[in-house]
């Protein structure tokens, strides 16, 4: 089974040289730490920055320089700032190659729910609806089951949707799966996890073809 770092490391392998990438809050943020040094990858932060650098050293925090999670960050050589309309303009016009975000539920047709639990949590969608509606490629980083042990990979989302038919790939603590017109297709197992365990944790349609390899994350 993967921990959060393991999920982030596995997702980092999906990033290609030359990509512009938007990372959501939570596990997706960790992905930045595992992008190979030799790759030219530019991170977009939807509050208005291309070329997001690491956290600042203590004493060098700048209140005017934050990421979409409101964390203090730094710039890199080649960074640029812009306003919020342009930020979503580059997202909507599909200049951003890859979006990585978290989810509460994903359906086997690619629907995603990650912004609202009626009557309980009222935080808002932020930029998530814009990102999922427009991104060329969306990878979801999430736990396979919730705290109650119920599957988060479903035939249909129960929670209010963030976007429809948009998720392309999911990386969980148990598996890597593609979303296809026929449902979730199992690509890889996490170290020490059996196909049976993944089946038991997946409520949506699950396609298992041939030997499913164990993933390598280092």
């Amino acid at each position: 089974m993967l921990d959060k770092v393991g999920i982030a490391k596995r997702i980092a392998k999906e990033i290609k040289d030359g990509y512009y990438v938007n990372l959501g809050i939570g596990i997706p943020t960790l992905v930045a730490n595992y992008i190979p040094e030799h790759m030219n990858v530019v991170l977009q932060s939807e509050n208005g920055l291309l070329g997001m650098g690491p956290f600042p050293f203590e004493g060098e925090e700048d209140a005017d320089l934050i990421n979409a999670g409101k964390q203090t960050i730094t710039t890199l050589p080649g960074s640029s700032f812009f306003d919020s309309a342009m930020s979503f303009g580059m997202i909507r016009s599909r200049k951003v190659d890859l979006t990585i975000l978290g989810a509460m539920e994903v359906a086997d047709n690619g629907d995603i729910a990650n912004w609202k639990i009626p009557g309980k949590m009222v935080k808002g969608m932020g930029g998530a609806m814009d990102l999922v509606a427009s991104a060329k490629n969306i990878i979801v980083a999430m736990q396979h089951v919730n705290k109650a042990g119920e599957s988060k990979l479903l035939p249909k989302c129960d929670l209010p949707l963030t976007g429809v038919r948009c998720v392309k790939k999911i990386v969980t603590e148990l598996a890597v799966l593609d979303v296809t017109p026929q449902g979730f297709r199992l690509l890889e197992r996490a170290p020490g996890i059996s196909v049976e365990q993944i089946k038991n944790a997946t409520l949506g349609r699950l396609i298992i073809e041939g030997e499913i390899p164990e993933m390598s994350i280092d």
Binding site: E46, D83, F88, G89, M125, G127, M129, D130
Partner: peptide, 9 residues
């Protein structure tokens, strides 16, 4: 509550 890009645009 409205999407962030919608708000900006």
């Amino acid at each position: 509550l409205i999407p962030q890009g919608t708000l900006a645009t």
